[in-house]
């Protein structure tokens, strides 16, 4: 379980509070108005933001004071997921060899395999700048696969893609996470993303992290804070 207990996190003019626990292997969407603290919540899980009070835990281990690089977490950021001066292969290799060493035979096989899985077979020699936005997202996802961590955080990573491409990428994330058995937490402002992808929805609004609700139930009977945010449809 990923557990966030009695959180209290400083934000610009307020503080984000709440308690949350998410089971391994679930796909969870975080919805809410912009500025409410969706990304802040991800930062808390990833360890990029200090807590004023509360605890972060994963399967019994206390992560509250672990630095980001010690947490069982991989992240897809909104942008800047790939080093622009390195080829796709070298970018992926860093997930396997964080000390910058050369690729072993086995590394190469794994990297090419991961690229094939995301539909980028034969692209390993390309630099990110020569890839389309969708291809860059795929390459970053291939790296998340190689990192094979039990928690995957997505910070609106496909918001720059068109609807069809985005749907495809979400499908791909679902496959990858399913294979890894990883918990996926995705921040989005698009309810359709949540409907399509998530099993549970966590609403972040009014400085509060609300309890997770099954996606179908959430949209069948949206909470008041959410209705205010999307407006009456």
């Amino acid at each position: 379980m990923l557990t966030l207990e009695n959180l209290n996190v400083d934000m610009d003019n307020s503080a984000l509070t709440g308690t949350l626990s998410l089971a391994p292997g679930r796909r969870v969407a975080i919805l809410g108005p912009s500025g409410a603290g969706k990304s802040t919540l991800l930062d808390v899980v990833a360890g990029f933001r200090p807590l004023r009070a509360g605890q972060v835990g994963w399967c019994g281990a206390d992560l509250t004071h672990s630095p980001p690089n010690k947490r069982p977490v991989s992240i897809l950021f909104q942008d800047g997921n790939l080093f622009p001066h390195l080829t796709v292969f070298r970018n992926l290799l860093l997930a396997l060899k964080p000390n910058g060493q050369r690729a072993s035979e086995e590394d190469s096989v794994r990297i090419e395999g991961a690229l094939k899985r995301v539909g980028l077979a034969g692209m390993s020699g390309r630099k990110p700048g020569t890839l389309s936005g969708g291809q860059q997202s795929r390459a970053a996802l291939a790296r998340v696969m190689l990192q094979a961590r039990p928690i995957i955080l997505l910070d609106e990573p496909f918001s720059a893609l068109g609807p069809a491409l985005k749907a495809e990428m979400l499908g791909l994330v679902r496959d990858v996470a399913g294979n890894l058995g990883a918990l996926v937490v995705m921040v989005t402002h698009d309810p359709d993303d949540a409907r399509r992808f998530a099993e549970d929805v966590v609403l972040v609004a009014d400085d509060k992290v609300h309890l997770p609700v099954a996606t179908a139930a959430f949209f069948a009977n949206p909470p008041e804070a959410y209705q205010e945010y999307v407006g009456t449809q």
Binding site: P67, P68, F77, L94
Partner: peptide, 25 residues
């Protein structure tokens, strides 16, 4: 600023960060 977080989540060592990212950039 651009890559500090990526560095963390990839768990890059100081050496790898320095030689593979910092110097080339």
């Amino acid at each position: 600023h651009d890559f500090g977080r990526l560095r963390q989540t990839l768990r890059l060592t100081t050496w790898a960060w320095f030689t593979r990212v910092w110097l080339p950039r």
